[in-house]
Simulated assay, not measured.
Amino acid sequence: MNTVLITGASSGIGRAAAQWLASHGWLVFACVRSDEDAAALNEVEPKIKPLIMDVTKPEQIEHAVHRVEQELNGDTLTGLVNNAGIAQMGPLALQPLDEFKAHFEVNVFGALSVTQAFLPLLGMDETRKGRPGRVVNITSVGGKLAAPFLGAYSSTKHAVEGLTDSLRRELLPFGIDVIAIGPGSVKTPIWDKAEEKNESTPYANTPWGKSIEKFSEVMLKGGRDGFPPEDIAAVIEEALTSKKPRARYAPVPDRLTNWTIPRRLPKRWVDRAMAKRYAIDVKG
Rank of each mutant, 00 (worst) to 15 (best):
175 G>H: 01
37 D>F: 06
158 H>L: 01
49 K>T: 10
280 I>H: 06
47 K>Y: 06
67 R>A: 13
217 E>S: 14
247 A>Q: 11
225 D>W: 07
184 G>L: 01
171 L>P: 01
80 L>I: 10
224 R>M: 04
185 S>M: 00
6 I>S: 04
143 G>K: 01
223 G>R: 01
178 V>W: 00
155 S>E: 01
133 G>I: 00
282 V>I: 07
134 R>K: 11
192 D>V: 06
234 A>I: 07
162 G>L: 11
166 S>T: 13
278 Y>R: 09
34 S>F: 05
195 E>N: 14
43 E>C: 04
281 D>A: 13
106 V>A: 13
121 L>V: 01
214 K>Y: 11
218 V>G: 10
102 A>Q: 12
33 R>Y: 08
96 P>L: 00
201 T>E: 01
34 S>Y: 05
77 L>D: 03
121 L>K: 02
215 F>E: 07
2 N>A: 11
244 K>L: 11
237 E>D: 06
6 I>P: 08
174 F>V: 09
280 I>R: 14
166 S>Q: 07
247 A>T: 00
110 G>H: 01
65 V>C: 03
84 A>E: 10
171 L>M: 03
247 A>H: 08
57 K>S: 14
32 V>Q: 00
172 L>Y: 15
116 Q>D: 14
256 L>Y: 15
55 V>A: 03
221 K>P: 08
193 K>C: 05
95 Q>G: 02
51 L>H: 12
191 W>M: 13
202 P>W: 03
168 R>Y: 06
63 H>Q: 15
128 R>C: 07
59 E>T: 15
273 A>N: 09
178 V>H: 02
128 R>T: 07
181 I>W: 02
88 Q>R: 11
227 F>Q: 08
173 P>W: 09
221 K>W: 08
104 F>C: 07
183 P>W: 03
113 S>I: 14
31 C>H: 05
229 P>W: 00
222 G>A: 13
163 L>Y: 06
86 I>M: 13
38 A>E: 07
196 E>I: 09
176 I>H: 04
56 T>H: 01
70 Q>I: 15
253 P>H: 07
65 V>P: 08
85 G>P: 05
64 A>S: 15
268 R>Y: 09
274 M>A: 12
96 P>R: 04
2 N>Q: 10
30 A>N: 10
193 K>F: 03
154 S>H: 10
246 R>D: 12
223 G>W: 01
42 N>V: 11
197 K>V: 12
